[in-house]
Simulated assay, not measured.
Amino acid sequence: MILPDLDELLALRGAAQGLKLGARRAALAQLQGGHRSAQRGRGLEVEEVRPYAAGDDARSIDWRVTARRGRLHTKLYREDRERPVWLLADLHAGLFFGSRRQLKSALLLRTAAMLGWAAVNGGDRLGAVLADGQTEPLILPPRARQAGVLPFLEALVERQPRAPGRAAADSLQRALQTVQPLLRPGSMLLLLSDFSGLDEHGEMQLASAAARCDCRLLWLSDPLESSGLPRGQYRLGLPGRLWWLDGERSRDAWQSVWREREHRLEAVTRRLGLPLARLTTADPVTVTLPRLLREAA
């Protein structure tokens, strides 16, 4: 199967035209009593000062407030009042799998690209956390227009898995832990994952994220995961660890494992009140994602 490249993700800008990411929550200044300041920096008005968070531009640190309060504070400029939209991509090696039109990793890249274009086209600032379970999660601070989306698309292409590998059990957990201190009231978090690594700690992280911002989950799957193998003998596994499996005899156990994951994720999202959208490798994202966003509006 073909891996998405940068040209393809750039071309998805056209397919993302007209997509809406939903209603905005109250801006941070409205929630915290922010005010416009006469101070200026980068040629823009300062709207408020708040505690520094990982990923903030070090050039925006307000050293006077920092000295007075004994803790780093950063300036938010008028331009920065645009809603931050965080895209969290759980891009572990286990996504290098697909039995239909595309790999799950390719589905993630195409979905993320369309969401990224939709965010900047709507006037939001796009930030991202990319986790693969092998290296430290990559943080891309929120930025507007092409300055936000282009580095994100480049990072997706660079970090996508290129060979089969074991799913990293803590990839999702590390990604959620990384994004937690970056979330602010009024921001949006779009989480793309197959949720194979969701555990109790991950559920706690999801609950914390849902309490901080507008959080939405996009579940990536392949039809073979839910249906099981057709009748016949199959050689499965990873390079160096392969074994034979009987499709008919394994189907009941296979489907039971899938139903357990499905029920757990649905229970978590119901309990936390989180929207859950499903995308499958069998369908083109240019068709399914616009429909899902319309239904969520």
Rank of each mutant, 00 (worst) to 15 (best):
V285Q: 11
G202T: 02
Q180C: 00
R125W: 04
S60N: 12
G123Y: 11
G98H: 09
G127M: 01
A169C: 04
L156P: 01
L88T: 12
L172C: 01
A144H: 06
L176G: 01
L19R: 05
D283Q: 15
L107G: 10
P151C: 07
S171I: 05
D252E: 15
L272W: 10
E260C: 00
L31I: 03
Y234H: 13
T66Y: 03
L183Q: 04
G33F: 07
P151W: 06
L6F: 10
L191Y: 06
L293C: 03
L293N: 09
Q177W: 06
S196F: 11
P142G: 08
G55T: 07
L293P: 03
R25F: 02
R264C: 02
S227A: 15
E200S: 14
L12E: 03
A38D: 15
R261T: 02
A93Y: 04
S208G: 03
L44N: 11
G94T: 13
L176C: 11
R24E: 12
E203D: 09
D57C: 02
L198V: 10
R259N: 14
L217C: 14
G247L: 00
L28E: 13
G133W: 06
D80H: 05
Q134N: 09
A119C: 11
A54L: 13
L198A: 04
E203H: 05
P142D: 03
W219I: 11
V268H: 03
D199H: 12
A155Y: 08
P223K: 06
R100L: 03
Y77E: 03
G123M: 09
R166A: 15
A168I: 12
E248P: 00
A296E: 14
R174M: 00
L153D: 01
L95T: 11
A29P: 00
R259L: 14
R100D: 08
Y234C: 06
Q102C: 07
R25S: 09
G33P: 11
W244Q: 14
R145H: 08
G122A: 13
A118I: 12
G186P: 09
W243K: 01
D90S: 07
A27H: 11
L245I: 10
L12Y: 07
A29E: 13
Q17S: 14
R36K: 04
L265S: 03
L21A: 02
Q180F: 00
E295Q: 15
D222R: 05
P84T: 11
V149F: 06
R251H: 08
W86H: 11
P142R: 07
R64V: 01
L6G: 01
W258F: 15
R83P: 00
G22L: 01
D283F: 02
L72V: 13
R40A: 12
L12K: 12
E295P: 01
A267M: 09
L272F: 06
T66H: 11
E136G: 02
A253Q: 09
